[in-house]
């Protein structure tokens, strides 16, 4: 039997973070499952879904990560996660790309439009770049419910984008099986 934990860590980027954290996890018998790790404005951020031995408690896991966290200057969080896996989403996968002048509220406005249409965000990353006139870029992978047509989705999203002054494009991201 195994149980699952969510481990997240953030700290100034440098070589050795992944190695330090994952060595400590391997040491206590944890197996990395799905993970996402990237540099966000110079900070290395990791979110790990980890399977551990049944007897392992989250505070023991946190204790095992204390030494590498201190050595690498990381803030670390450990949480138990619910063992039940949510139902697989049914719908069409779309890629949505948004860019425009930066201002507060772009993500909240666009995501509210998506949530209102029953669209589920399954991947999202944003980047703020540039100096005098910062550019905000946002890329999403979403699952569109079967009862929402492509044109209806595009229309709703374009309206939301116009309200916060950004440009939006959306297209189905279905892959061809070769």
């Amino acid at each position: 039997m195994t149980r699952h934990f969510a481990v997240s860590a953030v700290g100034g980027d440098r070589p050795g973070i992944v190695s330090g954290v994952t060595a400590a996890l391997a040491e206590i018998g944890c197996n990395l499952e799905d993970t996402s790790m990237t540099v966000l404005r110079g900070r290395f951020a990791m979110v790990l879904l980890v399977a551990g031995p049944d007897a392992l408690e989250s505070d023991q896991l946190a204790a095992a990560l204390q030494a590498p966290a201190a050595g690498l200057g990381l803030a670390v969080w450990v949480h138990d996660v619910d063992e039940s896996v949510p139902d697989r989403l049914v719908g069409e996968s779309w890629t949505v790309s948004i860019h425009g002048a930066d201002r507060p509220g772009i993500v909240s406005h666009i995501s509210a439009a998506l949530a209102g249409a029953g669209v589920n965000i399954v991947d999202l990353s944003t980047r703020l770049v540039g100096g005098d006139r910062p550019l905000y870029a946002m890329l999403l992978e979403v699952v569109v419910p079967e009862d929402l047509s492509g044109p209806a989705l595009t229309e709703r999203l374009e309206a939301a984008a116009a309200e916060v002054g950004v440009t939006l494009s959306a297209h189905p991201s279905g892959a061809d099986i070769l």
Partner: peptide, 8 residues
């Protein structure tokens, strides 16, 4: 690389 979690 993307998870193929969606089917229609």
């Amino acid at each position: 690389v993307f998870q193929r979690r969606v089917y229609r």
